[in-house]
């Protein structure tokens, strides 16, 4: 899918337009800027463009029914999977599901599942100013998982997955979402205030990272096996394998 649709003229034009919008907005705002709020606007515009371009890419693919259902299933597991851990609060399988999606079905699918899971999860728990940052952060976690592990000939080692899971959740997800909180809160944009925000989120981020590593350690084997079976039996997401 990366190869095929990335080259379609319709998409490239749109994505270029979108990606040009961001710097344009930045310049515009630089002129009329107000204190440090301009960084928030610029980052929101960039986030929106990034998320939108992935959605457009997805739209361009005209996904067949089985791919669409599988993506919907993965997003729903990421969201509803929390219910399996009703006895353990703070245990959220979202990141693990997103990473495994990236590994098994590619970075684009990883980004999509990450972003949509964050969005839908917030439909149930309430949208907030952090929604775009969460969407982007989970998307990024899935995208990079795809880029790192997708081209490996063999199945990625469990250890690497766990390390990636811990780091990506703690640094990528935590970093982006904490950055978002900082930008929204209106605190001065200094390393000190960034660290203050991060420190306030550390217990949460650590649990999240540890839970993700644990999920990946236990689930990566069976989950990949299940997805492989789906690919083998029902020819899921096959086109991009053929082109590679």
């Amino acid at each position: 899918m990366r190869k095929n649709s990335g080259l379609r003229p319709g998409f490239s034009v749109l994505s270029v337009v979108l990606l040009l919008l961001a710097p344009a907005a930045a310049i515009l705002y630089g002129v009329y800027g107000l204190d440090n709020r301009k960084y928030l606007l610029v980052s929101l515009v960039i986030l929106a463009c990034a998320i939108l371009s992935f959605f457009l890419l997805f739209e361009q693919r005209k996904p067949p029914a089985r791919d669409l259902v599988t993506l919907a299933v993965l997003c729903s597991i990421a969201v509803a999977g929390r219910a399996a851990f009703f006895m353990l609060p703070q245990f959220k399988p979202v990141a693990a599901v997103v990473i495994l999606t990236g590994v098994c079905l590619g970075g684009q699918a990883g980004f999509l599942v990450g972003a949509v899971s964050a969005l839908v999860s917030n439909f149930f728990f309430g949208q907030g100013p952090n929604t775009p940052f969460q969407m982007f952060a989970f998307g990024l976690v899935g995208l990079l998982a795809g880029l790192f592990f997708r081209h490996a000939r063999r199945k990625p080692k469990k250890l690497f997955l766990c390390v990636y899971g811990t780091l990506s959740v703690f640094i990528l997800y935590g970093g982006v979402v904490n950055g978002g909180t900082l930008l929204i809160s209106g605190l001065p944009l200094t390393p000190v205030s960034y660290l203050t925000v991060c420190a306030s989120g550390i217990p949460f981020d650590l649990t999240h990272a540890a839970a993700t590593a644990f999920f990946l350690f236990v689930l990566s084997g069976p989950m990949m096996e299940k997805m492989e079976r789906m690919k083998r039996k029902y020819g899921l997401m096959q086109r991009d394998d053929d082109s590679e």
């Binding site: 669409l68 259902v69 919907a72 997003c75 969201v79 949509v116």
Partner: peptide
């Protein structure tokens, strides 16, 4: 459609 399906599945 994807969103609507996810809302059905969850």
């Amino acid at each position: 459609l994807l969103l609507s399906m996810v809302m059905r599945f969850v």
